[in-house]
Design a protein around this nucleic acid. Sequence first.
RNA 1: GCCAACUUAGCUCAGCUGGUAGAGCAGCUGAUUCGUAAUCAGCAGGUCGCAGGUUCGAAUCCUGUAGUUGGCUCCA
Length: 637
Amino acid sequence: MSIAVRLPDDSLRQLPDGATGADLAAGIGTRLLDAALAIRMDGRLSDLKTPLNDGASVAIITNKDPESLELIRHSTAHLLAQAVKRLYPSARVGIGPVIEDGFYYDFLVEKPFTPEDLPIIEAEMRKIVQEGVEVVHEDLGRDEAIARFEAMGEPLKVEVVATIPQGDRISGYRQGDFYDLCRGPHVPNTGKLKAFKLLSIAGAYWKGDERNAMLSRIYGTAFHSQKELEEHLKRLEEAKARDHRKLGKELGLYSFHPEAPASPFFHPKGTVVYNELVTYVRELYFKYGYSEVITPQILDVALWKTSGHYENYAENMYFTTAEEREYAVKPMNCPGHCLMFGSQKHSYRDLPIRYADFGRLHRYERSGVTHGLTRVRTFCQDDAHIYCTPEQIKTEMAAFLALLKEVYDTFGFEGMRVALSTRPEKRLGSDAIWDAGEAALGAALDEAGMPYTLNPGEGAFYGPKIEFQILDALKRPWQLGTLQVDYMMPERFELAYTMADGTEGRPIMLHRAVLGSLERFMGILVEHTAGAFPVWLAPVQVAILPITDRAHAFSTEAAARAKAQGLRADLDLRNESLKAKIRDAQLAKVPYMLVIGDREAEAGTVSVRHRHRGDLGVQSLDDFLAGLAQESRERCR
RNA sequence: GCCAACUUAGCUCAGCUGGUAGAGCAGCUGAUUCGUAAUCAGCAGGUCGCAGGUUCGAAUCCUGUAGUUGGCUCCA
């Protein structure tokens, strides 16, 4: 008996019955057998030693195939578990999946791991690699699997087996003294795992649920080669160097204080950036027909009961009492806007009405989840609420998309992705209303030709939302903009407008933001630009550096003239060498430096240096200032 | 909130197993007047996050507390 399989180049190959992927690879060449990690049979990844089916299409997976990276990481996770079990026999294993840039494995241990354990575990892993332990697949019956893991004293694995749907195949893998429940596939031998590193320790709840036991998680990563691993570690370093918390401190932008946990203090330089962002958004509001409003910070709880926040959002709100009356600090602007809308009669001719509000919001976030500027307890949004008729949703949405694209283009954010978040468990309103809202957003996206993914259950309590995600300079994704339809709040506040036939209609409310929170946006922007803001945002746009005090008079004049044009100039009259002044300006990431010595002071010129492009030569002060003003005005990147 | 780690001068960090706190940079003073990433010298600066405890003695050990950091299912 023999079988035939089809190779990727469409050739057929005859093999004896029962032959495996390894046999196939060996038949083609010993070097291929050596490089082989797994096979893909009829589109499905499988172990190298899987028996081949007659007539199947089979490809040998090696390091060159993209799917092999995941394979290696998964097998490295197992290698980690094996090493841990050898070193700490009492440890119970949880799960060990592959994640974005590596893998993790969770363990139930009496004493959590410490960072000092990592090198020890890693050394044991290398030992197992040296041993070249064979990794063997085994099919298991459900009862057999449960019995086996019970016998092994692995309660978490037993629990996992119980969650595997009836009818699914259950399989285990043996590698020497270690046995694990796993879907696979895996590399055939631990000797194939060459480049890996354990990175960190973290506590993690079993199944991510805080009611469950806390496990000790070890994160690691693996690559095909040491070189790729090192490159990856270098990228991590780069990201660390751009960390907005570090740069914010170094550049004097903002600080945090225990007196106001997770609440930023913007220093003068950070405030310049912040205000420039607001100015920019204001200009766009003018262009796109928004009206800015100002609303109170603290409002009676009665309002929050009307809006539904009291029932659905109270755990994120701050409360306060005065004269025995209970108030809440606003976590959102929308209820205030509804009061304003409702205070006047509106005609269909007035709609849409777009209220924009930079009001300061406070939201209580659990202490463990705050993070620098990106997750804070007080912030402002470039927030606006659009009251419109049902027919106007589509045009409003199209206009919003145009606004969004304009803004993201200004900052150089690319790779926009869109997600539609649907009804959460905790919500207001009937299913019919949610059906309508989700359908309206979906249809609007379809009409705009924007592909999107679904985030089931991630919507706001008052309505579904669209979230817009971009990629920064390091290709990391960030969610910025959002657009939400809300039928509920107009209903609860009994908002109305007079329709053409004289009867009353209920407006639809759209919640939307482009930058999202200004605080968070600033953090993202610091990382995106590595702190080197474009001229229009730079706290100091030009540093004026006299070489000797003979040049002080002209330098002072240059600074005054820059200031007269609305430019932010810093005059460095310190008794320091030019080199030192340049170094300080470079470290402060000032876009332009003007070197002024005797020659320049004499001729009324400046020697221009750019923070990235270096010495740009001499030009007249007027020409330089005109160019700088233009670069700032046009918001060049 | 939970698990773990961290918290020493304005900043970045030393300070071994407990024996009365140190550097660089920044700051201040003075000298130097200099051409594209740090001129030199001197001075000053900390009740070691906070509160208890152990000890003859605590930055160091223990307990509590605050803040920060890494995480808390991209499902065997």
